[in-house]
Design a protein around this nucleic acid. Structure first.
Lengths: 110, 110
DNA sequence: TCTTTACATCGCAATATTACGATAATAATT
DNA sequence: AATTATTATCGTAATATTGCGATGTAAAGA
């Protein structure tokens, strides 16, 4: 136990959940917000802005990079992170496919 | 450690992350999908449909109820669960406020 | 070359999550 | 009243996540 039983769900369900999951941490929401506000940033900016250690920020950045919502470009000794607009919109679209389903409610629910 | 440092983030960031987090599990995505398809369901339906134990389903239902996206109505010896349309739309709206921010990209990112 | 800066990764401790069996509570059925 | 059906909750084991110090790497600057 403690292990999510991914095998019993569809690829779509697992995919959607994994996207939601990455966004399900306030530090990662804050990082995205900061990158949007500043257009771009480096890891150290975030260490100063949020109150988390460099190793922690780096780990969160990695998870965001994994789903493609941000990208990092090496610039000398630092790495410039910014939003991947295409993925940003695609992920929003995936969420909206889910949320735009027509919800009909049974009589049992007032 | 292992403890999210909520104090250092804004209420909005914590709120948004907590919503994402609840949807960040395939069982909960599957449960919502099933309720939408069937209009309503009882806990036992889900136990049969997904391959998870009754206690596990009940726990997931509780988390979904906590954010208000579903509601449960007692009907004799069972509980009828269905989507709370209002909350469903409100949560989608909250996500879209986040995603509809204008994303501008710096020159460092190709 | 030596130092500094920026970052990623490793290893670990603390905490959280997931899943389930067992049990309790409540309502319907016999 | 006894049984059955449905659900919630408790306790617990297995695993995952979060956060950080320490360490390694690579580029820039002295």
């Amino acid at each position: 136990m403690g292990l999510t039983k991914s095998e019993i769900f569809t690829d779509e369900q697992n995919r959607l959940a994994s996207l939601f999951k990455v966004l399900g941490h306030p530090a990662r929401v804050a990082i995205l917000q900061y990158i949007i506000d500043q257009k771009a940033c480096i890891c150290n900016d975030l260490v100063g802005e949020l109150g988390l250690a460099q190793a922690t920020i780096s780990q969160h950045l990695k998870e965001l990079k994994n789903i493609g919502i941000i990208q990092g470009t090496i610039e000398g000794k630092s790495v410039c992170y910014c939003i991947d607009e295409k993925l940003w919109k695609q992920i929003q679209a995936e969420f909206n496919v889910f949320f735009n389903q027509e919800v009909k409610v049974n009589s049992c629910c007032p």
